[in-house]
Amino acid sequence: MKVDPDFLDTLRLGGEFNARQCINCGTCTALCPLGMEIMPRKLFRYALLGNKEAVLKSTEPIYSCLLCKMCEANCPGGVHIAENVRALRSYLNAEVLEV
């Protein structure tokens, strides 16, 4: 795994991204209507670790997210999950998809 130490800072240029309160309990993944294993805790972990490559490979889950906040409403860590997903989209739009 290649780590980009600046990845998180770059990500935050696109908006609020903060998943440090995540305790990796998996409540979010269990409740997600999409049932995608990577969403959202693994994805956030990749971002926190600077695993840019793994984030870039996750375009489909990132844009599939319904932003329904079922996960966020039940997150014991109080992570702003929907806003984080939006920040990932904003980053991908600007850096990768050139939208």
């Binding site: 209507p33 999409l34 489909e60 844009y63 599939s64 319904l66 932003l67 329904c68 079922m70 409403a73 039940n74």
Partner: peptide
């Protein structure tokens, strides 16, 4: 209420099949 389940609508534009499955659920 605060635990409502999504209608699937937000995925309709890019992922219509996923959207339909959630709506059916």
């Amino acid at each position: 209420k605060g635990l409502t389940f999504c209608c699937g609508g937000p995925a309709e534009t890019l992922f219509p099949t996923k959207s339909g499955k959630i709506a059916a659920q």
